[in-house]
Design a protein around this nucleic acid. Structure first.
Lengths: 223, 223
DNA sequence: CGCTATTGAATGAACGTTCAACAAATTTGT
DNA sequence: ACAAATTTGTTGAACGTTCATTCAATAGCG
């Protein structure tokens, strides 16, 4: 590296270097898996020297905790933003939730792989477990409340919490499929599966061909 | 250990000792996770000495491959047996498939945890990947064919393959939930979520209260 | 010059694998 | 029938490697 770029690199603020290392961590998790990810891999991936991670993150454990926190923050911020930007009708809200989960920004092979690599270890790591639980709870309760509204609007018989659980579980299952069989199972495939099942579960909210319908409430009250 | 029991232990055939070590591996994977599972853990768990695994399995890698193979064989054999024992009507077949997935024998905390621990590493290990793919394909195509029959019987509009994918993904998602939040999310909870969503997806096959109905061949046309 | 970021070599712990020694079981020879 | 020889299963110590962490030395910055 030339001295000019070396100087420029050195001037980067701390937060940027941390993010750079977190990204190298995600890369390594996706490429090599949890067990085979070493600090040397991460440092090499970031183009930096061996001791650098312990300087910025104190320990490998902490680096991984910060990585899962990064992924979880990005995930939650993304669906919450998409939800608030969506139209207020039930179908739009529902679609916002499920397309956020499969959003191009979130749902990349490397991020999915890294997420599962960390999540699987969450069982034995309290700090990961806590983060997984938070992600879960927020999304799940929001989805359940949308299902409750939809039930009133469509006069459905299902139990809203149970249906929300089923939809959420299905999405996590599709993530798993994408992680394992990403070559044949992509975002677009998963999205069409989700849309199909939604139009089956909420038939009054979708046309026969699956087109979303906005339901107007003459005799229903919202939220 | 007394000499008598020591002698008895030594007489156990090779296959039994292998299964004993595989079980200790599942225990360790569930308790400590993939990364922290060592051969010393496995040997200690089985109450045997350090070098024993390399004698029976040649390498750690091979032990783990045999473990995932063991779990996958048990899983597949279980649902195929339950399916063949079930009544021939569509609802019974469908229920056999989904209850097999959540069967008490298969769906234990330790087996779920071990399965995910190994599966997550499958991305980077061709031999695991192959096994995961096999498990997937068999179950998925069987489920799709049942959905196809149900569609004819109930005059549903859904795409059978897509619906089967959604159901299967949901089940894997519920496994993930059980792994992560096993204290609050158990087999019984997951099962009720599955049954709820099935009666939503196949309304003609279930009564309003969710009771399964056997459909007879008169209803075959419509829409 | 003090301060902060970075480097890379040194350290020590953990782990998979190997192997010589031993013990039990089984086969062979007489 | 029984001892010797051989095979099979098991042990635990030794070995070499890998890895996270530490730290003294260094370089850029204001």
């Amino acid at each position: 590296m030339t001295q000019a770029t070396e100087a420029a690199r050195r001037r980067e603020p701390k937060a940027l270097r941390r993010e750079q290392l977190i990204n190298a961590t995600i890369d390594s998790l996706a490429k090599r898996g949890y067990a085979a990810t070493t600090l040397a891999d991460v440092a090499d991936g970031a183009g930096l020297s061996r001791g650098i991670v312990n300087f910025h993150f104190a320990s490998k454990d902490n680096l991984l905790t910060e990585t899962i926190k990064f992924l979880q923050d990005e995930y939650t911020a993304n669906w919450q933003a998409m939800l608030s930007r969506a139209a207020p009708d039930t179908v739009s809200q529902l679609l916002a939730m499920v397309t956020a989960d499969l959003d191009k920004k979130i749902c990349t092979p490397r991020k999915i792989a890294a997420w599962f690599a960390l999540l699987t270890e969450a069982k034995t790591r309290p700090s990961y477990h806590q983060l997984a639980w938070e992600r879960d709870e927020k999304y799940r309760t929001t989805l359940a409340s949308i299902c409750r509204t939809a039930k009133q609007e469509g006069g459905y018989r299902f139990d809203p919490q149970s249906t929300a659980d089923a939809i959420y579980a299905m999405q996590e299952g599709l993530w798993l499929r994408m992680m394992l069989f990403g070559r044949s199972y992509r975002r677009e495939t998963a999205l069409s599966v989700v849309l199909d099942i939604l139009s089956t579960i909420f038939p009054k909210h979708f046309a026969a061909d699956g087109t979303p319908l906005k339901i107007h409430e003459e005799d229903h009250q919202r939220r």
